[in-house]
Design a protein around this nucleic acid. Structure first.
Lengths: 167, 167
DNA sequence: CCGGTTTTGTTTGCTACCGAACGGAGTCGG
DNA sequence: CCGACTCCGTTCGGTAGCAAACAAAACCGG
């Protein structure tokens, strides 16, 4: 609505149409997808600059800490899945978190291929102090939306996640 | 709605509440924000694997090419702004695009600090062939949503972008 | 047992991304 | 003019992120 009213975007739409030379353009889908990406970037940057940086954490590092806090000690593969990261990336994130003293690796006795990751005391302390502040930030970032709108947004996004996930 | 019905998430909510020991939790905001991030990741991965990889482009590289296509030759700073990237990042992206032969840098005569970036013939050819396919992918990723829902989603996200942007 | 297969996490090689620091180029007051 | 300041893009140092290749461990059929 508001987007369509913006002269800037109408300009863009007309320009793109011109470039496409009459071929069809799904503008609504384009706008939805690009706003998803922009919003994620904005939200991530805001959180990293506003809260996470003070604790020496990236978004991925925070997510990992949070998952371990909620679910407890986990195997690497499950942790990667839950954090929505490849296992290769998770290896790196855990390495950084280890360096900072927030988590520790533990070799599994019964199956020596496996490794679990768990919060250290410092990690637990950090996430307990950090999460309430992070959650307040989340609230601020969606402060313009009513409760219903937040839930509607989450629901719409959930359907996109499912659709896009079926690659 | 649907999210709240999921036993997994209710579990998580209860667990978090327990960890918080009675301190308040803004669950709706949390869910909205985390779904924004998850959706963006899903959408980006799908596009990179499904279309962009074949052209040797990342999401950022594609965005840059697209902006140059729509708006034409641009100064580095404006391009970074339009692509929603730091100027440091843009330098790297442009370097990669140059290596692939998609864009070229041009020194500005009137102010020798400045540099503009423009599509090459190969870059133009690539984006013209690529964009329609990318746009079809965008459509697929939001295929579960009606036109109204896509516009509603874009509008809700726009308000989040604005709110989160005011750091 | 044993050889092939599968599972698991790490390593490798690459790109992306950021903030901060930098150095060359313009600008402006005096 | 010229020194101080500002502006512009790059560089530097770091983390994040992926796919593919890998090594070690477990498993399994014979």
């Amino acid at each position: 609505m508001e987007d369509r009213a913006s002269p800037r975007l109408l300009d863009a739409e007309r320009l793109i149409q011109a470039r496409l030379g009459g071929r069809p353009l799904d503008f609504d889908s384009m706008l939805a997808v690009s706003n998803i990406y922009r919003a994620a970037t904005a939200v991530r940057r805001r959180a990293e600059r506003g809260v996470l940086a003070q604790f020496g954490l990236s978004w991925g590092g925070f997510t990992t800490l949070w998952v371990l806090w909620v679910w407890g000690e986990m195997r690497t593969a499950d942790l990667a899945e839950e954090c929505d990261l490849s296992k290769a990336t998770l290896t790196g994130v855990v390495k950084t978190l280890e360096k900072r003293g927030f988590v520790e690796r533990r070799q599994v006795e019964s199956d020596r291929r496996r490794v679990t990751v768990a919060l250290t005391g410092a990690g637990l302390d950090t996430i307990e102090r950090l999460f309430p502040r992070f959650n307040r930030y989340e609230g601020e970032m969606v402060r313009e939306l009513s409760t219903d709108e937040k839930q509607a947004l989450a629901g719409l996004l959930r359907r996109v996640i499912v659709a896009a996930g079926q690659a």
